[in-house]
Simulated assay, not measured.
Amino acid sequence: MERHEIEAFLTLAEELHFRRTSERLGLAQGRVSQTIKKLERHIGVPLFERTSRRVALTAVGAQLRDDLLPAHQQTQRAIARAVSAGRGITGVLHIGYSGSIVAAAVLAVAERFRHCHPDCEVQIQEVQLSDPFGPIRSGEVQLQVTEYPVDEPDLAVGGVLVSEERALMVPRRHPFAQRASVSLEDLADVTLLTIAGDLVPQYWLDYHFPRNTPNGQPIRHGYAATYWPEILNLVAVGKGVSPVAVGVERYNSRPDLTWVPFHDAPPIEYGLIWPTSGESARVRAFAELCRTSPSRLG
């Protein structure tokens, strides 16, 4: 059996669908069909049962898959290790993320990265918004997914990976909780909870927690929190409200909180950052996987 025949057989054995197999292999569907037929003629028995509605392995096909798969996977791992070593994608890659909305997706990309580069360990940690660039500047993390905007001379920006509509998180009994949407002008009538810390850039705070509405009305600022759970609890007890990404509700849904979408606010965007002096083969490889992920990171 030639390598392309093994790959076509094992891919079809996994997908049990000729079109998806051809898409994965980057081949015409007819070419995949011809390869399988040639392999079946060589072996002398059918490997797949085909109908107009389904494709299934025969008993011989299932046995062949079970016999070939371990050796094929070992070969693929050996090739991946050689490629990674040649490109310098070894060692440990420390990755930071700034919120639950991107955490699951970062973990999923990390699993793909480990499969592609088995000699490179990936370690992931959360970065607090009160010190958004501290870990990456200290070298604690080499790559980070965080809320934009980021305008720092020593940090490279890798482009938007996730764009989420903006909502206002309010207590369940707040007057806004019954609305279908709110406006940025409505912020003049509430107290805005913010993020604490001299380490948070003012331009970032102004973007996420403005002090004036678009028409110039002042917005009251209340308690400045260090950690995200503080904001959840303070909003719940009526100490203020907070702008958030709509998707945050998926991870922080509570009976005492309501998320009301804005109808006129810009989205909250998340993207990659890394030190301009610290771009490595590991960083480039992980960033590329993020960019080419079928669902991006959202």
Rank of each mutant, 00 (worst) to 15 (best):
M1K: 10
R3W: 14
H4D: 15
E7Y: 06
A8R: 10
L12A: 04
A13D: 12
L16T: 15
H17P: 01
L25M: 09
L27N: 10
L27F: 09
Q29D: 06
Q34G: 02
I36V: 15
K37W: 05
R41C: 01
H42W: 04
I43K: 05
G44H: 11
F48T: 14
T51L: 06
A56Q: 08
T58G: 09
T58Q: 13
A59C: 07
V60Y: 00
G61E: 11
A62M: 08
Q63M: 10
D66M: 05
D67S: 08
L68I: 08
L68C: 04
L69P: 11
L69E: 13
P70A: 07
H72V: 08
T75P: 00
R87E: 11
T90G: 10
H94Q: 07
I101D: 12
V102S: 08
A104V: 13
A110H: 06
E111C: 01
R112E: 13
R112S: 15
F113I: 07
F113S: 08
R114T: 10
H115D: 15
D119I: 01
C120M: 07
E121G: 02
E121K: 10
Q123C: 10
Q123H: 12
E126T: 12
P132N: 15
P135Q: 14
R137T: 13
S138P: 01
S138D: 09
S138V: 02
V141W: 09
V145L: 13
V145S: 08
E147P: 00
D151Y: 12
P153I: 14
L155E: 07
L155V: 03
A156L: 07
V157I: 05
V162G: 07
S163T: 10
R166H: 07
A167W: 10
L168E: 09
L168V: 13
V170K: 02
P171H: 13
R172F: 09
R173P: 00
F176A: 14
S181K: 04
V182G: 07
V182I: 07
L184H: 02
L184I: 00
E185N: 13
L187N: 06
L187E: 11
L187Y: 04
D189Y: 07
V190K: 06
T194S: 09
T194M: 00
G197H: 09
Y203M: 02
W204T: 12
H208R: 06
R211A: 14
R211W: 11
P214Q: 05
P214E: 15
P214I: 10
P218M: 01
I219S: 01
H221Y: 03
Y223S: 00
A224H: 10
A225I: 00
P229I: 01
I231S: 06
L234D: 04
L234R: 07
G240S: 06
V241F: 00
V244H: 10
V244D: 08
A245T: 10
G247W: 00
E249P: 00
E249D: 08
R250A: 11
N252I: 05
R254N: 15
P255T: 01
P255W: 00
L257K: 04
W259E: 11
P261N: 09
F262I: 01
D264P: 05
D264Y: 14
P266S: 15
P267F: 05
I268D: 00
E269Q: 12
G271S: 11
I273L: 04
A281I: 02
P294E: 13
S295C: 09
R296I: 03
R296W: 15
G298H: 02
